[in-house]
Computed example of a mutant assay.
Amino acid sequence: MEQHIEKKYIPLSNYFQSTQQSTIQLSFTEIENILGQKLPNASYLNKSWWQKTKSPLKHFLAWTMNGYQVTAVQPGYYVTFHKPVQYENSGETTDDATAYPFIIRQAELDDARDIVLLGEQLSLKMFKYPYGQQHQKYSVQSLRKSIAEWKVANTSIMLLAIVRGEIGGYLFLEGYHSPYLKHRATLTIGLLDAHTNKGIGTRLMAGAEEWAIKNKLRRLELNVAKTNEAAIALFKKFDYVVEGECHDAILIDGHFENELIMSKTL
């Protein structure tokens, strides 16, 4: 499928592929969050841009090849997509996961502001999540610069979980430039509570590992609060092992917590 769709619209195609909802209404902002970049001006000005299904344009393949068609457009506000439902007398119940569409994609420059806002939401409860050497507060401008540098250097990557058209979580693999450390990367992950237990963390971890192997990394490492049982279970699922424990390493609300050092050799 991907070889027929313009590269820009592949994340949107993946989004439609991830759900079985018969009707989906997405705002222009949500669509741009899924894409990681702005829609063309024509999409804001003309309903016909959404309703065209002929070459040489190929953006429409993102939804038509997944069985959806555009049924309503309010330029600049929202687009409604509909997929005819085929009923089968299978006796099976509906899987809630199909009503919770999400995709995993690499962070783009236009995501910087939303990533910073997500970081502010997570910062109040960061002790619940792993955190890496980059534990710092990015500005929108500095994050845009960093995303551009990561793409060029190819030593680090930030993956985003786009849930229902919004950024609901992230995973950051931060690598090193030193030739003595280029085989290593530190992993940081954060996910909003509303999107936990949906398989998103697993998909983020799998995507990070796939990228790490492709880029010939050998060691992935992270720090995590010892009390964060859910995160530790996720890491052990991916064969991370505990290398050590730092006592009283984290100070949260006046209380010290121990920290585990975990790693995986690829």
Score class of each variant (00 low, 15 high):
residue 172 F to T: 02
residue 132 G to Y: 08
residue 201 G to P: 00
residue 176 Y to K: 05
residue 125 K to P: 01
residue 111 D to L: 07
residue 135 H to D: 13
residue 117 L to A: 12
residue 188 T to F: 04
residue 167 I to R: 04
residue 134 Q to C: 09
residue 116 V to E: 11
residue 179 P to N: 11
residue 198 K to Y: 04
residue 122 L to E: 03
residue 147 I to F: 09
residue 112 A to K: 03
residue 191 L to C: 04
residue 108 E to T: 07
residue 106 Q to G: 07
residue 123 S to Q: 13
residue 204 L to E: 00
residue 149 E to D: 04
residue 146 S to W: 12
residue 114 D to W: 05
residue 174 E to I: 02
residue 109 L to P: 01
residue 162 I to Q: 01
residue 182 K to C: 14
residue 155 T to D: 03
residue 199 G to F: 11
residue 171 L to M: 15
residue 186 T to W: 11
residue 142 S to Y: 10
residue 106 Q to E: 15
residue 156 S to A: 12
residue 152 V to F: 15
residue 121 Q to A: 11
residue 118 L to N: 06
residue 119 G to N: 08
residue 175 G to H: 02
residue 124 L to H: 06
residue 190 G to L: 07
residue 152 V to K: 15
residue 134 Q to W: 10
residue 140 V to W: 09
residue 133 Q to L: 07
residue 192 L to F: 07
residue 129 Y to P: 01
residue 165 G to K: 01
residue 113 R to I: 14
residue 110 D to V: 06
residue 191 L to H: 05
residue 199 G to S: 12
residue 176 Y to N: 10
residue 180 Y to H: 15
residue 129 Y to H: 11
residue 179 P to V: 13
residue 205 M to C: 02
residue 206 A to P: 04
residue 111 D to E: 07
residue 206 A to F: 02
residue 168 G to T: 02
residue 121 Q to P: 01
residue 207 G to Q: 01
residue 193 D to H: 12
residue 203 R to H: 11
residue 115 I to L: 12
residue 121 Q to Y: 08
residue 149 E to V: 01
residue 193 D to Y: 08
residue 125 K to A: 14
residue 170 Y to V: 03
residue 153 A to F: 08
residue 147 I to T: 08
residue 165 G to M: 03
residue 156 S to H: 02
residue 179 P to W: 10
residue 175 G to A: 09
residue 175 G to T: 09
residue 186 T to Q: 13
residue 182 K to I: 11
residue 179 P to C: 11
residue 207 G to T: 00
residue 184 R to E: 14
residue 178 S to E: 14
residue 145 K to H: 13
residue 112 A to N: 13
residue 111 D to F: 08
residue 156 S to L: 09
residue 131 Y to I: 02
residue 195 H to L: 09
residue 141 Q to F: 12
residue 161 A to C: 12
residue 153 A to L: 13
residue 160 L to G: 00
residue 112 A to R: 05
